[in-house]
Design a protein around this nucleic acid. Structure first.
Lengths: 204, 204
DNA sequence: CCGATATGACCATACGGTAAGTTACCGCAC
DNA sequence: GTGCGGTAACTTACCGTATGGTCATATCGG
């Protein structure tokens, strides 16, 4: 039987893996884990389904790889900013700036951590949980400092406020996805204006 | 063949429909549209799959019915509050209080409007779009007033801020889902504390 | 010729959806 | 009151297809 193109492309495995992960992240981001289709990912990447399985074993494996690639980058960046000396709203703004910069090439990766239809048990849940915990823990520290300054010390209040803060980031990323013409710089400037207006502070 | 229990329960259609919608809302909320399973909904409701189809025609029909039941309630309440005389942060707080009160019996219905895996075309998209537009429009008016007072008039800034505000509501509802012991009243009190701390205002 | 890259064709099954029939109840003729 | 027909409520068993996943095989550089 004739199989045109079989094996003729010769793209190195690592390159191909990254290309697949790019496409898969977008697909998972757009449709959620359950709504994403491997066949569609293959089509969008211009390759065949079996190649994906030969590199990532399963749908779960592919999603897991996407989550881990994204999680490392995002969590590292957030923790890096947290280790700086800034505090309160300035730190919040720096975090947003860092996230926008990282997400600029591929904004969809943010959504991998907030997928309702992703498996709730097994390695995927563990990985998502791990990265979310790193992110949440860091956010929690920042929120704690901010709220303590204002006299709020109730643990549940801080927990809720952390959830709100993470959701604010989420909202801005999603808004950005709907306004793809905006640059990371413009997004940061926008946040400066909004924080300034809401909290009446002068930001650097 | 013996069919034990066929037709023996005799629950009136409207009651059964509402029961199914309760279960379906939770299932859709937990797993998203694509991740939800009709068989599982039937099982959770203690009935058989065909009964669901005889009442709602299809998975889309079931989701649509859930969205419409939830959307009317939520959008009406939000618009009702918006027609009051309050403004700015007070109005924000009243909106949150209203939403918490409405969602108390069934918090999952909020998530139906933010499902990534729901159909993007057809009647479902239209219904979701319609309710989201009602909610967004109302939110947008409140945000516009608030930001204009602070000198922010750029249309895109307002659009982004509206998205952030809606996401704040989303975060609080999700946080609530993870802390089911909390009452609507406690949630409202928590928001009073947090808004007070962040914005340094005295709220009624 | 061997290993890496790649594919068309296929399998298994989960899930949306349906056909056909069962049970219970209600209203009504007698 | 009782037999009976119509209807609402409900079920088992099944179908078709989309999708996750696999197999055998092809191409090509070194």
């Amino acid at each position: 039987m004739v199989r045109p193109n079989a094996g003729t492309k010769g793209v190195p495995r690592l390159d191909r893996e990254n290309q697949i992960l790019d496409v898969a992240s977008a697909e998972f981001g757009e449709h959620g884990y359950a709504g994403a289709s491997i066949a569609r990912i293959a089509e969008r990447a211009g390759i065949s389904k079996p190649l994906i399985y030969s590199y990532f074993d399963s749908k779960e494996g592919l999603f897991l790889a996407a989550v881990e690639r994204a999680g490392t980058v995002i969590a590292d960046e957030i923790e890096r900013i947290a280790h700086g000396s800034s505090e309160g709203l300035v730190r919040a703004l720096e975090t947003l700036q860092g996230i926008f910069t990282i997400l600029e090439p591929q904004p969809y990766i943010w959504k991998l951590f907030f997928d309702e239809s992703a498996p709730r048990t097994g390695p995927i849940a563990a990985a998502i949980g791990g990265y979310r915990e790193r992110i949440t823990k860091t956010a929690d520290q920042g929120v704690t400092v901010l709220l303590h300054q204002q006299g709020v010390t109730h643990q549940l209040d801080i927990s809720a406020m952390t959830a709100v803060w993470l959701s604010v980031v989420d909202a801005l990323v999603n808004w950005w996805l709907e306004h793809p013409d905006q640059t990371a710089e413009q997004m940061t400037a926008r946040c400066v204006r909004l924080i300034g207006a809401l909290f009446g502070e002068d930001l650097p």
